[in-house]
Structure formats: structure tokens, C-alpha cells
Nucleic acid binder design. Structure first.
Length: 290
DNA sequence: ATGCCATCAAGGTGATGA
């Protein structure tokens, strides 16, 4: 099974690229971040036409996450359990959605940016990451053999090698000790970065700023990850970062990150024409419902 | 050879991103 994660920076602006990516790479499950679209306007029909079911969580023009799957999509979980709220009034932002696809619980996560050290958003980011660790650790305590993957934009560069110039990021978010400790806590909980062994650095990134020719200059950051539970990590046979998707007109500032796993569970046939799967398991908006 | 800030809603600009 091929699983990928991609911060698309607006699904509407990237729709042709996303569908093209799925068809070109044969990705079975795609975790999407920064859809920037609410549920009612989600372009599920384009995915259905390509053979993918959708679980999506979008509340406004900000954030937004989704999962597209052509190997079944069930047990949809909207939001991260225990996640902190943000804003005035405080709201639970659309930053997490999970779904079981061919036996693997896949999460699409958009970790808060943090904005600046000392900003309320920075504390929110750390609290959000703590909730993520608590949830993942709890799942493993309940079932050490659970097969799941945390995919998404973590907005953390775990080591100095994961930014193009550490001096440029001095004092900035993404590289601070508390953020790196929060990432390390996920690893300590038993999760594994299953991409890095197949894509060694230095100079290997998943994000390049739109400004100042960062991409052609190869000046990026490695902030998008697929963190696998022990049971799934043992099944990963390969991984790559699809740099080509960062090229050309209309690219996201993030590249897709892809893994392949062995021993795929029997795929559940996709309903005719695909469908949207809601959190309660009810299938809506699809031409051929269950 | 990858190329010189992009996205949204709202409004003729501000917020957000990292």
C-alpha cells in the first residue's frame, strides 16, 4: 500500500495537481493538510471520479485536513482527542482527522505554526503537540500492535540538518528546544520517522518558501513527516519525497512525502463513484452509496 | 533547471503562513 502526506496550501488552487499526483503515483491513501475549504464546498466529486473516498474536516478558509483513500475508509475520527482550542472565542480548529484504510489508521495532521516564540500561538502549538503525544501513546498502551501512522505538516525541523541555514532560523519557531522536545516525545512514545532512513540528508527537505528563490536555491526545511507505529514501521519497504511536485507554476510550497508498506490488508472495494464518509460512518454525497 | 510570495475572504487590504 502506498501512503502519502501533503500540505497542499489550498485544495481548490491545487486540485488538478492533487488528482494528477494520485493518478501518477498510484497513491492509495493521501493525508491532505491546509485544504482551506469547509466541508460543504469540498470537491469530493473530483476524488470520487478518480476512485477515491474522502473524509474531510474543514471549518473555514483556514487550516482544514482530509484523507483520500481508494482502499476503504472507515472509523473516521474528526479532531484530535484532547486538543487545545485557540482564538477568541476559543475554537477547536480543523487540524486533525483520522480514518482506517485497509487496516491502517491514517491521521492527517496540521500542527499549529507557532508564529513566534512567546506568541500565544507558540504555547498553543506545544499544547497541541502534547495532546498528540498523549493520544498516540494511549493507543499504543491499549494495543501495542496497533497499525497507525501520523502523517502531516508538523511545523518542526527536528535537527539542525533539517533547515538550510541554522543561522537564519536563530530565535525562530520550528527549531526551538521545546518544539524539538515535543517531536522527540513522539519518537520516545514509540513512533518512527519511516521516511528518513530512505531519504538521508543533508539537504533533503519537504518545504521551500515561495520567496527569494528558495526552491531553485535548494534552501528548504524538513517539516513534513510520516511517523509510524511499531507494527506499521516494520512493514515500510520504501519512501521518497516527491520534489518534482514543488516545481513549476501553481505548486504548493510543500512537497508530498510517500511511503510504501508490505502485507496490505485486503482492500475494501470503493463504492461506485466514491463517496464522502462522515465521522458517524454515514456515507453521503456519493452517487453509489453503500 | 527548479525561477524571483501565495492563499483566503473581503473589499480595493489584512491575516496567515514558516
Amino acid at each position: 500500500m502506498r501512503i502519502a502526506t501533503w500540505n497542499v496550501n489550498s485544495l481548490r488552487a491545487r486540485l488538478d495537481r492533487v488528482i494528477g499526483f494520485l493518478e501518477r503515483t498510484g497513491t492509495d491513501v493521501l493525508a491532505i493538510q491546509e485544504t482551506k475549504i469547509d466541508n460543504a464546498r469540498f470537491p469530493a466529486e473530483r476524488f470520487a471520479a478518480a476512485g477515491y473516498q474522502i473524509a474531510r474536516h474543514g471549518l473555514s478558509q483556514w487550516n482544514g485536513v482530509a484523507i483520500a483513500s481508494r482502499v476503504g475508509l472507515a472509523d473516521v475520527q474528526v479532531g484530535l482527542p484532547g486538543a487545545p482550542e485557540f482564538g477568541d472565542p476559543p475554537v477547536a480548529e480543523a487540524r486533525a482527522i483520522g480514518a482506517r484504510c485497509a487496516g491502517v489508521m491514517v491521521w492527517s495532521l496540521y500542527v499549529p505554526n507557532g508564529r513566534a516564540v512567546g506568541d500565544p500561538h507558540y504555547d498553543y502549538k506545544l499544547a497541541w503537540l502534547a495532546a498528540l503525544r498523549e493520544h498516540a501513546a494511549g493507543v499504543l498502551v491499549a494495543d501495542a500492535g496497533a497499525a497507525f501512522v501520523l502523517g502531516g505538516d508538523f511545523n518542526i525541523a527536528p535537527t539542525d540538518e533539517d533547515v538550510w541555514d541554522v543561522d537564519v532560523f536563530a530565535g525562530a519557531t520550528h527549531v526551538t528546544e521545546p518544539e524539538r522536545a515535543a517531536f522527540g516525545a513522539l519518537i520516545d512514545a514509540g513512533l518512527a520517522d519511516v521516511v528518513r532512513p530512505h531519504t538521508p540528508g543533508p539537504g533533503v527537505y519537504t518545504f521551500w518558501d515561495y520567496q527569494q528563490l528558495r526552491f531553485p536555491r535548494r534552501e528548504g526545511m524538513r517539516i513534513d513527516f510520516l511517523l509510524a507505529s511499531p507494527a506499521l514501521a516494520g512493514r515500510v519497504t520504501g519512501a521518497r519525497i516527491d520534489r518534482d511536485e514543488r516545481k513549476g507554476k501553481g505548486a504548493s510550497d510543500h512537497a508530498p512525502v510517500i511511503i510504501d508498506t508490505s502485507d496490505q490488508a485486503p482492500a475494501i472495494p470503493v463504492p461506485d463513484g466514491g463517496a464522502v464518509v462522515e465521522a458517524d460512518g454515514v456515507v453521503v454525497d456519493g452517487p453509489g452509496l453503500w
